[in-house]
Every structure is written in C-alpha cells, then in structure tokens.
Nucleic acid binder design. Structure first.
Length: 488
RNA sequence: CGGGGUGUGGCGCAGCCCGGUAGCGCGCUACGUUCGGGACGUAGAGGCCGGAGGUUCAAAUCCUCUCACCCCGACCA
C-alpha cells in the first residue's frame, strides 16, 4: 500500500489533502496559496464547465472576456464593494524589471512605476459595469446576459487546495436588466441552475437560501446561495447568485432610456461558482480508498483492466466492449500497461475515483463473462460479456443515483433542530451538521451566536417550513427557522 | 496576522541532543523470475542536508539572522 491515505476518522483535513494530491488532482505550487491543477483535477473542472456553460447558454447567456486588471479607482466607486475586497487585493505597481546594479539578479525598475495602480481582479463587477455604461443606452439594449470564465485573485490569509486558494478559476455572470423584477427573476433562475447542477451532476444535495446581511456579498442587496454539507459536518457555500439592485448602475452611472423616454438606472445581478466545487465534490463522496466521482462528471467513466495482462483474446473482447460502450455514449479507457499488475491498477483507479471497473481475463471469458466492479459500494458482479455494455450504462445511472441518495441521507441525518443555545452547542460540538433554529433577525444576535459557537447562519432557506418561534439566544419572536453550521 | 510545525535524492522520513563528511522505505533504471487485489531477487542511478553569516582542524548536527511552506485560529467563494 504505497499510496495509503490518512483515514477520515483519524484526521479529516489530512485525508482531504491526501486525496487531492494522491488522486492527482492538484499540487502545491511555488507560490503561496496557489495550486497547480493537475490533469485529473482539471478534467473534472472541464466537465463542470462544459455542463454549466451549456446550461447558461440554454437560458440565453453568452460568454465574453474582460481584463484581468482593474484600475484602482474603479474599485472604490461602490463603497460596500471596496470594503469587502480591499483587504485581499493583489496590486500591480510597476511594469518593468531591470538588472540589479550589483549583479544580484533583477529588480523592479523604479522608473517604471504606474501612474495608477492596477488591481488583479478579485471579481469583475467594477470593470464590467464601467464597460456596460457604454453598452447600454436604451431599454432595447436590455437585458444584457453575459458570463465570463476567468481566474481571479483574492489574497487569502489561509488557503486550502480547491476550497480556498489565492488564485482560483470560476465563472462570473453579470447581467443588466430594465426592471427590478427581471433582475430578481434572473438571480433566482441562476440559483436554480446551480442547485440543479449540484444535485443532478455533482450528486451533491444543496439547500437554496438567502444570506443574512452579515454574509451578503459586498455591494449586493441580496445574496442567494446554495449550501452543501460535507462529510465532517461542516457546511460549504457552493455557489452564490446576487441581486445587486441598482448599486453598481449608480456607482458607474449606467442608465437607459425607457419606453416612456425617461432615464432610469439599470438593475443588476452577478453570480458565480468556482473550482471550490471540485473540493465540495471530493468532500461529499470520497472515502478512505480515494476519490469517488459521480459518473456524470468523471473524466473516465469506465476503465477496463486486462487480467493479468493483455493478450490477443483479451484485447479482442475489450475492443468489442469498448466499441459498444462508446456507441452508448460512455467514456472508457483500456489500461493495457503491461508493466503494472492488476492489483496495482485496481488500487490506482480506485484512488482516482473511476466509477466502474471491468476486469477481463481468460478465466471469465471462457465462461462468457466479465467482472464489473463499482467504485461507490466496492461491489463486484460477473456479467455475461455480451450484455456488459447495457449493464454498465444502467450501472452508471445507478451509481449517480446512489451517490445523491447517500449524500441526501447523510444530510438528513445531520440536520437537527435546536431550541436552545445548549442544544445548539451540543450538536455543533458533537456530530456537527446543519442546525435549524429560530433567530430574531438581527445582526447583533447572529454575531453573538457566532462568537459563542463559531457557527454562522448559512442561509435562510427558501423552501423551509414557515414556523413561528422564539430566538434561541434572545427569546425574541422569529418567523422562520434558519440554518446554522460551522463552515469552510 | 496570532499559535503550532516542517524544510535532508522525485515522494515519505531517520540522522541533530552528544560535530568527524549522509542513511532507510517507496519510486526510478537494467536484467531475471513472477502475474485473478498495490510482486520478488540482483545490480545500478540519484542529495554540496531551504538560504546567508558565524564558531571549529572539521558543521546536516552548535550559534545568529533570514526565507519558504504546511497545519490550527481570526478574515473570506
């Protein structure tokens, strides 16, 4: 067991790091807080991108690209916005290097100082709204439904592979609308897309909700989010969709002439998901043997291992099966590396989370069968060779379904009501998970609870039952339970 | 930014207390034997011990300074 990983029960965050590195997802880089995304990790991200991109396009959005650099002055135009991001910005101050006079290497050329510093975008609202100002004159120019796939930089103090890196990849949608209602509808439309994607593709159940004022995006009137629960009982914000009101339109003076020939401020939304989703995917499904991937996002859905090694008969059988699987839309790889033995390959593919493994050996072929193993349950069955393709297609669906169900069950078991601070504390210090509790709606109370428990309000669930009660801290009236958790 | 830790072949580590010129496991290369759950043998390749000073006949080891990264917090997608 050369590649044994730390078990979840022993040290959850070490387990997570082991998975990321030993499954070949990412590595630490020479730059603090920045990771190298390796081919296996990037392939998963590409599959996420592909699916999300088509969902955005199906709902009328188009892609564009805005600059990496933002003039410093732009950032300060929206007061809330700059407050939210100022502390974590990378700043470009010069544009040239020169040889050090003492020959010790290169130094920044002091004569190449920029007149105005450039900020490496932490998010693109400002540069985009500065551009929208020129693009929007009339109600006929609206709505403007634009998305960009990009990298952003936030100089985080504490980073974690995929979950929080100083540079990360994401998509950010920025839309402009003629009416408040239209912008609100857009915010919710995207939230639904995110939730659908999380559940149907990532097999990661999420709670849709609204953030409290404390947790709101800097510059938004409302922040909607999807919240997922990880295996260690901590919550992960998996995506956000912001209703920006007219804040950025006001800051960047973006107005349009309506049908009545009156100038109005434009309404805005912005929304994003990032490579953090890859971290969420890992922490939702994987186990002590490595990565577990939902078939819909797995770079390779089926791997075929010759047992014990390739031979003409085995190759022929594999060839036929691969052709069959490909015609059924399944991605399949033949691991015919003769220098590695089957056991090694099994362990390796389990580590990398390939959903289905097919073992093809003479002993089975003589019986007209192949061995099929599923990654999620580790079960193995023998299936007639000729029906293997159809069997696998069904099995992939079943795995996808099972992963979602398993994650849902876990979340259900780990979502508890608390009606007092004592109950809440004992849940959080015990099993963890989501705690559903009454809250009086004030920021002071929320912060006081955070102070005592380290838990934050993850969201006010959109489809939670309406139930009146009294705040677990102050006893003041509450109209709905909200979801607390310790979070990543 | 506070607290903790670590820097030694590609990876994981030992050696440091008590200075004497670097070792183990995995991986890598070659050959042979193996081959239905991470094979074995033999022979090899590969490291100026994070960096800079200092002490000493002699420094991975002692002293000073420094840099980097990781983990736990606070901040955040």
């Amino acid at each position: 067991m050369a590649k044994a990983i730390t078990s979840r029960s022993e040290d959850y965050s070490q387990w997570y790091n082991d998975i990321v590195r030993k499954a070949g997802m990412a590595d630490y880089s020479a730059v603090r807080g920045c990771m190298v995304i390796k081919p296996h990790g990037f392939a998963i991200w590409e599959n996420m991108q592909k699916q999300l991109d088509s969902m955005f396009k199906d709902t009328g959005h188009v892609n564009a690209y805005f600059p990496l650099f933002i003039p410093k002055s732009f950032l300060s135009k929206e007061a809330q916005h700059v407050d939210g991001f100022a502390k974590e910005c990378a700043v470009v101050t010069h544009h040239r290097l020169m040889n050090a006079p003492d020959g010790s290497g290169v130094i920044v050329d002091p004569d190449a100082k920029l007149e105005e510093e450039l900020i490496v975008r932490p998010t693109s609202e400002t540069i985009i709204w500065n551009t929208y100002k020129d693009w929007i004159q009339s109600y006929r120019d609206l709505p403007l439904l634009i998305n960009q796939w990009a990298n952003v930089v936030r100089w985080e103090l504490r980073t974690r592979l995929f979950l929080r890196t100083a540079e990360f990849l994401w998509q950010e949608g920025h839309t402009a609308h003629a009416t408040r209602q239209e912008a609100l509808d857009e915010t919710r439309l995207i939230l639904d897309i995110y939730a659908t994607f999380a559940e149907e593709y990532m097999a990661m159940p999420v709670i849709k909700g609204v953030k409290t004022a404390n947790e709101r995006f800097a510059g938004a009137d409302d922040t909607y989010c999807i919240e997922a629960l990880m295996q260690d009982g901590k919550a992960l914000q998996a995506g956000t969709s912001h209703f920006l009101g007219q804040n950025f339109a006001r800051a960047f003076d973006v107005t349009f002439l309506n049908k009545e020939n009156q100038q109005e401020l434009v309404w805005a939304t912005s929304w994003g998901v990032s490579t953090r989703l890859v971290g969420g995917l890992i922490m939702t499904h994987s186990d002590d043997d490595g990565l577990v991937l939902p078939p819909k996002l797995a770079p390779t859905q089926v791997v075929i291992v010759p047992i014990p090694k390739p031979s003409p008969e085995i190759n022929d059988a594999v060839e036929a099966l691969m052709k069959n699987l490909r015609s059924l839309g399944v991605s399949v790889k033949y691991d015919n590396d003769e220098t590695k033995r089957p056991g090694f390959k099994f362990a390796e593919h389990e580590m990398q989370g390939v959903p289905v493994r097919v073992g093809v050996g003479m002993r089975d072929l003589e019986k007209g069968q192949v061995e099929i193993a599923r990654r999620d349950t580790k079960e193995k069955v023998f299936v007639p060779k000729d029906g293997a393709g159809d069997y696998i297609v069904k099995l992939l669906d079943e795995i996808q379904e099972n992963l979602l169900q398993r994650a849902k069950d876990y979340r259900t078991e780990n979502t508890r009501n608390a009606d007092s601070m004592e109950e809440m504390t004992s849940i959080l210090d015990g099993p963890g998970g989501f705690v559903s509790a009454h809250w009086d709606g004030t920021s002071e109370t929320e912060l006081a609870i955070k102070e005592q428990t380290k838990a934050t309000i993850r969201c006010i669930p959109l489809d939670g039952p309406v139930e009146t009660g009294s705040c677990i801290l102050t006893g003041n009236p509450s109209s709905q339970r909200v979801l607390f958790a310790r979070a990543y």
